[in-house]
Each structure stands twice: as C-alpha cells, then as structure tokens.
Design a protein around this nucleic acid. Structure first.
Lengths: 350, 350
DNA sequence: CACGCTATCGTGACCGGTCACACGCGCTCG
DNA sequence: CGAGCGCGTGTGACCGGTCACGATAGCGTG
C-alpha cells in the first residue's frame, strides 16, 4: 500500500529557500527593487527588471505567500466555507470559485462546517476571521451555512451564495440563483401535462422552505391545485427511496418534483421496484441537472442550475469586498427547465 | 441576483484585529506568555493561563495563520494538487484529506492543474514550492497529476495518491488503492458467469495502462480469453455513450468493464437505446461505486473504492513528511467488488 | 547561608515580505 | 543659474507571530 522513499525529501538537506534579499544581492540591487519587480511596479528601468528577473530564475526564487499576506495585512486568497464538498451543487460552486480564483492568482482554501451545532458554527466563523483566510465565500444553501453567515464578524470580507427564497437581509452581499421561479416552472410543466397536482420530496432547508419548495408551492396555489404535504428526505438517496416507496403506494400520485437529482434517483428506483412506470404512470422531475441525469433510463427532466457561474460571481464579489471597491455587476444564466424523458401526461385522468 | 449591503463590512470602520501583544497587555503578561498559552506550553502557571485565556476571549483574539507560518517557516496546512475536483474519485479523496486535516487543525488548500501541458504543470509545481502551502498531497490518478509529481522540487514535503499499477518509483512516498486486483476480480466475475471475454471502456491513464486496465488484462490472460482492444473514453459520459453505441452493434460483446461508474452509465444508456437488455443481453460493471449506482435500474455491479481512507492516509503521510518523522502505518480497506443487478450469465452461450 | 536547580516569565532578534519615506540624478523653467 | 520636479532606487520600520536566550523567584541541599 505504501511505498517508502529511498533518499527522499526528509533526508535531503533542506537548503534554505532564497528570499528577495538573496535575489537582490545576486542582481546587485536592493530588496525593495526586487519587490517592485515582483509586483509589476512601472517605476523600474527595463534593464534593471530583466536583471532581477534573471536572478529570480537562476536562483529558483518563489515568493512566500505567508510573508506577503503578513506584510499586506490580508492574503491574496479566498476561502470557501461549506458544509459539503461532494454534493453536486456545492462542488460545482466550489469549482466556479476555484477557476476564478486561480485565474486571478488567488489561493483557495476550503473549510467545511462539521454540523450546524453552535460549536461547529462558531469554529468555522472563527476560522475565517483570520486575515490569512483572505476573501470568504460561504455557501449557504443549507442551515449550517446560513448560521455561519450569521455568526461572521462584520469585518470579515464575506459574500454568500444562497438559493433564492425570501431570506431576510443580513446586511451582507449575497448572490443567488433564482431557483424559485425555476421550481415554479417545473411544477407548471407537470401541471400543464395534465397532472392533478405534484408532490414534493425535499432537500433540507433552514425553515422548511427553500427556494425550490417555495416555487413549487407558488405554482400550485396559482393553479389552484391541492398542496400535498412535502416529504423531507435530507440529502440522502436512501431517504428518498423510502419516500418513493410510500409515494408509489398511493395511486393518486402521478407527478413528483424532487429537491435534487439524487433524490429523484431514489424515488425513481422505488417506483421501479413497485412496478410503477416512469413516465407512464408517474412523472418525476429533478433539480440541478447533474451530469448523469441525461443518461438515465429514462433520462431525467430536471432544472439546470449555473452553479459554476454562481461560484465565479461569488469570487468576484468577495474580492471586490476585500478590496473595498464597488460590487461588480453579476450576470448569471438563470436556471432553466430541461425536459427529457421522465415526464409525460398521466395515464388516467383523475 | 445580487443584493447590495446597506451598511456592510466595506463601510464599517475596520478596527485593527488584536495581536498577542494587545492580549498580553490586557492580561498583564508578556507577549511570549500569550504565545506559550496559545501553543499549550506546560510551563505556564494555571492562573496565568486562565488570565490569558480570559483576555483572549474578551478581546476576540484570533491568531494570525500567516504570521505563525512565517515565524515557523512552514504552515500548518495541506494543499491538495489535483486536476479535477468533481469526479467522484478525486472529490472523495479530497474529502478524506479535508476531514483528517480539519481534525488535526490544519488548513486545507486546493490547487487544480489546468492541463497536463508543461506550462500548467510547472505552475502547479511552483505553487506548492512555497512553504506557505504546507504539506502537499498530489492526486496523481492521471497524467497531469503524475507530471506535477515528477516536477516537484525534492524539498517539498509531498506525497502522492495513485492507483496501483506498476508505476516506476519516483523516490517519493506514494499511497495507493490496489485497484489492479479489484479490476481482475471484476473481470473474473464476468468470466465466471460464462462470458467468452470482457470488453473494456477506459478512463485516461498515463501510458495507456491504468491499474484498472492492467487488472482487466491480467484476468483475461490468466483465463486464456481473447483480449479485445480497449476503448478509450476520457472522463466523458458522451464519449462512453458513443463507445457504447459501437459496442452495442457487435453481437459478440456480452460483457463490458467500464473504467468508472460514469462511463458505465454512458454505455448502459447506449445499450438501452439499441434495445440491448442489461443484464439480459450484456453485462456491465463499473468502478468506484458512486452513491447513485446502487439506485440505477438495473443497479450497477461495480467495485467499491475507499477514496476517503486514501485521502486520510495521504494526509497523515504528508504531515509526517513535513515534520520529518517516520512514515505512519497505513491501513486502507481494499477495493472490493459489489455485485448487484447489472451482471448475469450471457443469454446465448457462444 | 551559599549554592544549584527548576519553574515561570520577559527581552531581543528574526521570518520574508510590505509600506512610507528619503535620496541622487537629470531635466525643465523662471 | 538655482529652484522645482519626476524618475529610479535605497533605507528603516513594520506586520504578528516564532525562536533562543536571559532573568527572576522559590525551593531544597550541603
């Protein structure tokens, strides 16, 4: 399993890394000049600059980010606070942040929130209170994230990525995907197909009403359709599967909107095991458009979310806040319904 | 989309964060004593310690990680170098590292490798040459990761997570999941079911022979079965789908081992569209056991990999290397085949 | 009572960058 | 021809922790 090193790094003499003063000595200039070259200052003569660059190259000099952060008072970094790194929405948002950060020369850190307990929330908030954390993006799709956001000191340059519900304003910059209208759109799609109503298997949310859930309810009340009790399923496919079993037994359910694609997979499997055809007997739609959903059998009707764009926008906003500048304009591609094979008119009109 | 803040952080007077000297003054001790308390030094009287702790609490003091890293010469951090953050294997490994790092009080950074071009590889290697990066784990499942590993300076405390093929020794500590025997096991499962041979749709690998591919070949030669050309499919489900279309047209293919579960999804879909029943007409097995695969229809036979454990082990090893200590013993749970519904005996014995 | 030892604590220098400022130089301008 | 200015560059102090060392107090011992 593990292969020991023969004469690896630990035994090697660790020569001290060169600092800007070493480079300066080699180039015959002062350390400040090296610093200027490093920072692209215009007031350095061209030949001086090349001499310094050459010394940097030959000595293999790498600037020390810690020292720079210390001198600057803040780090050129962004740290992402999230309660999960693997769920599709979170991971894609993180990816968007990372891409933007790398392009801007920012380091990226990740701090996951263990749980939404007061203790864990405080630890996460403390963690990013350190200026070494740089700009902060908290992914507040869930209660844990929202709590951390609320627990943050006013002076930490943080922005939040949230879903679109009518969350009360916290006095912070927040950027959101407007999934509420998308959820309504998905629900209306089902209703338009002729379904009497649509059931909802929900992901966790702060006060039981995520943007997804709110949009679903919006569409139902607008259509005057009955509003079934929402079925909470956490993030867990197993829970969704269990919920699906129960739903499958009720001949009245012919359409179900799931809080995300994973949950859709769970209920679709439950339906399958009960011999309920999708979309023949019951239609199911997901949320997120995870990469696999187009390849399922049947391919999943779902709503596509621009998490990566959200991440990028969050990074830009967080950096702007760190710099004290004005907030940049953001333009996200709005969520949109992708109709595939898992939705159809109900077999028997009730 | 974006909600501006009213009197947010940018306008707030940013009071200077207290330093250990401020805390020392408040507690009536020297800054060194505060440092000692922070580091859990035993040679501090109990009442002095509580006084300092109290001052820390009331002033809201948070130690500055950059300053600490600078003084120490290295950061209490680990940075993960990877070419992807969303693919299941990578994301789970990252998760394992993160969990272990958080438990140990280490910060975690992520640096993704844009491509395996010489330029991008060099940039990634340079990035982690900085002592601020702390310990380094490079996820070397693919060519890009392997190249970065090779490009690393000898004195950066890095370990690599790799797959189990007979990769030549680089003089570094590497930790691997032994997926080669697991791939052989999966292939043998198919063979034992009565299939004449097994086709392979492959993920990218450095020299065209990943551990998965090697194990597959091992089993085939041991069984004296014909060895079909491997079908490369990148990481892309669309490519796997295309490969599946071609495979579906050949009546001789009755079993296919896929490089990962995503690829399995793609070929399964292609098979479905061609009316080839799984597992009735062709068996398919995946690799990784992603969370959804148990809920597919049919549920996927696949091999479960302990990526999280791999990540944890990598963290421990990297920290040991950072500290110059001996390498810890690692015990990973070996990959194992999970037989579900997507494999069965061939319908017609050839 | 002098001595040494330990426990506890404080002082100075340092890590590797940054900032603010001063300085020398050549030029323009009154 | 000297004052003023801008360019290019160097010096000192500083960021907030760390280390190495020294100082002091309290104690036991011969």
């Amino acid at each position: 399993m593990i292969r020991k090193t023969a004469g690896g790094p630990s035994t090697a003499v660790r020569r001290a890394a060169p600092s800007i003063r070493d480079v300066a000595a080699a180039a015959g200039v002062s350390y400040q000049t090296v610093s200027r070259v490093l920072n692209g200052s215009p007031s350095v003569r061209a030949d001086t600059r090349t001499a310094v660059l050459e010394a940097i190259e030959t000595m293999g000099f790498r600037p020390n980010r810690s020292a720079r952060a210390l001198g600057l008072g803040r780090a050129r970094a962004v740290t992402v606070v999230t309660s999960d790194t693997m769920l599709y929405g979170y991971a894609s948002t993180l990816q968007g942040i990372e891409e933007a950060a790398r392009a801007a020369g920012f380091a990226v850190g990740v701090r996951v929130i263990e749980s939404d307990s007061a203790d864990d929330v405080r630890q996460a908030a403390d963690y990013v209170a350190d200026p070494s954390a740089g700009a902060v993006v908290v992914i507040a799709f869930d209660p844990a994230g929202a709590k951390v956001l609320a627990a943050l000191d006013d002076d930490v340059p943080a922005v939040a990525a949230i879903e679109a519900s009518g969350r009360r304003d916290t006095g912070r910059v927040v950027i959101c995907l407007d999934e509420r209208v998308a959820a309504a759109q998905a629900t209306e799609h089902l209703l338009a197909l002729g379904h009497r109503t649509v059931h909802h298997v929900a992901i966790p949310s702060e006060d039981g009403s995520s943007g997804r859930q709110a949009g679903w309810r919006d569409a139902l009340v607008r259509a005057g359709a009955p509003i079934p009790a929402v079925v909470p399923a956490g993030w867990d496919m197993a829970a969704a599967y269990a919920a699906g079993r129960r739903l499958a037994e009720d001949p009245l359910v012919t359409a179900v909107l799931c809080g995300n694609d994973d949950l859709a997979l769970g209920v679709r499997r439950a339906l399958y095991e009960q011999g309920r055809d999708v979309p023949g007997e019951v239609s199911v739609v997901g949320f997120d458009d995870i990469p696999g959903s187009a390849y399922w059998t049947p391919a999943l009707t779902t709503v596509r979310m621009d998490f990566t764009g959200l991440g990028r926008a969050c990074f830009e906003a967080a950096v702007a806040q760190l710099a004290g500048g004005p907030q940049p304009e953001v333009s996200l591609t709005a969520p949109c319904l992708v109709v595939r094979e898992s939705t159809a008119p109900p077999r028997t009109k009730p």
